[in-house]
Simulated assay, not measured.
Amino acid sequence: MKRTRADRAGKRAFAGWIGKRVLGGILTVLLASVLIYGALRLVPGDPVLAMTGGRRLTPDQIEALRHRHGLDRGFVQGYLAWIGDALRLDFGMSTNYQTSVTSLITNRLGVSGPLILYSAVLAVVSGLAVALVSAVKGGLVNRAAGMAAAVTTATPTFVSAIGLLALFSVGLGWFPATGAGTGLADRLWHLTLPAVAMAIVAFGVLARVGNAAFAEELRREHVEVARSRGVGAAAVIRRHVVRNALAPMLTIVGLLFASLFVGTAVVETAFGLDGVGSLLVSSVSRRDFPVVQGIALIAVLLFVVVNTLVDLAMPFIDPRVALGGAGR
């Protein structure tokens, strides 16, 4: 009976912990959406003139633009109308392309989506592999890995993109300099250099953080006990090191995966890819505020969703997280 009551109390506490995480994510998106919508109102001068780049418009055209973007209404009323449309995946019309912002972003995701996934796989596999090997080997290997992680972390993405283009496209001619390719194999070939350029910083972060996490687990008492009992080195690393270090690493991986979406702006521009990142850059330069607002809101939503999913997955990877969170 007591155990049943304890189980019910534990489930209620765990459900409350999940509810807090989800509610926190929703509030974050709402606050960010207010700031994103309000940015248009903070433009110096007339926002309509800022969007049109000073082009001469008739009074009827100016009034139509004001109504389209909710500038003829108060802030609260305009925001509620805008966020209501956004919840229906309607981000308005692009002032530059004269088409739906949603369709523009959806069409560009065909390039940005594979690029982000490709880059994430490269960063996670190489970063964690280097981190684990350097933590286990130690000595010269550990120092070399630390130097490589420090250099890659400090290298800006645009520098990596220029260097890769100069060496592998212009110099050696191994990879194409621009374009996204057609078909699976051709697309992977075209996206290899952009994916590597995006993955370099993420690789450095994962290698450094992963090395520290794995090294800490290797020094724990239960690892020494397992070794003294004759458990094989591979089994010790798999069961006691990697598994226990996975929880803190998952948080870093989630953050880096979401940040890759923002990183597409630099890489896609450098490699001439028609993705969401290059669309954001061109929309900022052309003052296409509806497109900028739509991409910004999607980026915030991606960060919040990924971080919330990571938080919800933590208790299943490390039950201590759930116990600690439920107790607060």
Results as ranks from 00 to 15, higher is better:
60 D>S: 15
112 S>W: 00
36 I>K: 03
95 T>M: 06
45 G>Y: 02
92 G>N: 03
75 F>I: 11
49 L>F: 05
39 A>G: 07
115 L>C: 09
100 S>L: 10
107 N>F: 01
60 D>M: 11
112 S>R: 01
57 L>T: 04
68 R>L: 12
34 V>D: 02
72 D>W: 07
50 A>K: 07
67 H>S: 15
42 L>Y: 04
96 N>Q: 13
87 L>A: 15
90 D>H: 09
47 P>I: 09
77 Q>D: 14
94 S>Q: 07
99 T>N: 08
72 D>H: 10
111 V>I: 13
82 W>C: 06
35 L>Y: 07
35 L>W: 07
105 I>N: 01
88 R>K: 14
90 D>P: 05
82 W>A: 10
47 P>K: 09
44 P>G: 14
75 F>A: 14
62 I>D: 04
51 M>S: 07
49 L>V: 12
83 I>V: 15
68 R>G: 05
50 A>H: 09
51 M>H: 08
101 V>E: 00
66 R>M: 06
55 R>A: 13
100 S>T: 13
114 P>R: 14
97 Y>P: 00
64 A>T: 10
105 I>S: 02
115 L>D: 01
107 N>W: 00
60 D>W: 01
83 I>P: 00
50 A>C: 06
65 L>S: 10
82 W>Y: 14
106 T>F: 05
72 D>F: 06
83 I>R: 03
71 L>F: 11
47 P>A: 12
112 S>F: 01
74 G>E: 09
71 L>D: 02
98 Q>K: 06
106 T>R: 06
77 Q>R: 06
80 L>E: 05
64 A>M: 02
104 L>F: 06
102 T>L: 14
70 G>S: 08
54 G>K: 10
58 T>M: 08
44 P>H: 09
106 T>Q: 08
55 R>L: 04
101 V>L: 02
95 T>S: 10
85 D>S: 15
85 D>R: 15
42 L>E: 06
88 R>C: 14
86 A>R: 00
70 G>E: 02
107 N>I: 01
77 Q>F: 08
42 L>Q: 13
60 D>N: 13
56 R>L: 13
92 G>T: 06
49 L>H: 08
113 G>K: 00
41 R>T: 05
51 M>E: 04
105 I>Q: 00
74 G>D: 02
104 L>Y: 03
44 P>V: 14
98 Q>A: 12
43 V>M: 11
41 R>I: 04
49 L>C: 03
80 L>A: 14
51 M>Q: 08
48 V>I: 13
95 T>H: 05
93 M>H: 12
111 V>Q: 00
62 I>H: 12
41 R>S: 09
36 I>L: 07
104 L>T: 05
66 R>W: 01
75 F>S: 10
51 M>C: 12
97 Y>D: 13
92 G>I: 03
54 G>E: 11
101 V>S: 01
55 R>K: 09
98 Q>F: 08
110 G>F: 05
64 A>K: 03
101 V>G: 01
109 L>R: 01
76 V>K: 03
